[in-house]
Amino acid sequence: KKTCTFCKKEIWNTKDSVVAQTGSGGSFHEFCTSVCLSLYEAQQQ
């Protein structure tokens, strides 16, 4: 099972999830929504 990098909820429907390359290492992270992605990126600043 996949979990959201930001909120840690399980991702049930992968077509609704967002995968983004974030951080200095350029690793890929999966998020349940684009909202979680935005919040995660804001936290990394």
Rank of each mutant, 00 (worst) to 15 (best):
F6A: 13
C36G: 02
C4Q: 00
F31W: 03
A20L: 06
L37H: 13
Q45M: 01
S27G: 12
Q44E: 13
V18N: 08
N13W: 04
E10S: 09
K2A: 09
F6T: 13
F6P: 01
H29T: 12
V19E: 14
E41K: 13
S27T: 14
Y40S: 10
A42K: 14
E41T: 06
F31A: 03
A42L: 05
G25H: 06
L37F: 07
V18S: 13
V19T: 14
E30K: 07
A42Q: 14
C36L: 00
L37I: 03
F6G: 09
T14G: 10
L39H: 08
T22N: 08
G23S: 13
T33I: 01
W12M: 15
C7F: 00
C36M: 01
T5A: 06
E41M: 03
S24F: 03
A42V: 06
F6I: 12
E41Q: 10
V19P: 14
T3D: 14
C32S: 01
I11R: 04
V19N: 08
H29E: 10
E10Y: 03
S38T: 08
K8V: 04
K2Y: 08
C4K: 00
K2D: 10
K8P: 03
L39M: 07
N13F: 06
Q45N: 05
A20I: 03
G23K: 10
Q43F: 01
Q44C: 08
T22D: 15
G23Q: 11
V19C: 13
T22M: 11
S27L: 11
G26E: 12
I11W: 05
Y40N: 11
V35Y: 06
G25S: 09
E41S: 05
S34V: 07
S38F: 01
V19R: 13
S24E: 11
C7L: 00
D16G: 05
Q43N: 07
V18R: 11
Q43R: 14
A42R: 08
E41I: 01
L39P: 04
H29M: 09
S27P: 13
S24M: 08
S38E: 13
V35G: 10
V35H: 07
S34E: 10
I11C: 13
T3R: 04
T3W: 02
F31G: 03
D16Q: 05
C32K: 01
G23E: 10
I11Y: 09
K8C: 11
D16C: 01
F28Q: 15
C7G: 01
H29R: 11
C32I: 00
A42N: 10
Q43K: 15
N13A: 15
K9R: 04
K2W: 01
G23P: 07
Q43W: 03
Q43M: 05
W12T: 12
N13S: 13
K1E: 08
A42Y: 03
Q44P: 10
C7T: 00
Q21Y: 04
E41L: 01
T22Y: 04
H29Y: 05
V19Q: 15
A20P: 14
H29V: 12
C4Y: 00
C4P: 00
T33Y: 00
S24Q: 13
E41A: 05
T5N: 14
K1L: 06
Q45A: 14
E41P: 04
C7P: 01
T33M: 03
C36H: 03
L37W: 06
I11F: 10
L39W: 04
F31L: 04
T33E: 10
N13Q: 15
S27Y: 04
H29G: 12
G26V: 07
A20G: 12
S17P: 01
N13L: 05
T33P: 05
G23D: 07
F28Y: 06
S27N: 06
S38H: 12
K9H: 02
F28D: 15
G26M: 07
F6K: 12
W12K: 05
N13K: 15
A20Q: 15
Q21F: 04
K1W: 02
F31N: 02
K8G: 06
Q45D: 15
C4T: 00
E30H: 14
S24L: 04
T5W: 04
S38V: 03
G26C: 07
S34H: 08
N13T: 15
F28T: 15
W12C: 00
D16P: 15
G25Q: 11
E30C: 09
G23A: 09
C36Q: 01
I11P: 04
G25L: 04
F6R: 11
G25A: 11
G25W: 01
S27E: 14
Q45V: 10
Q45K: 15
Q21I: 04
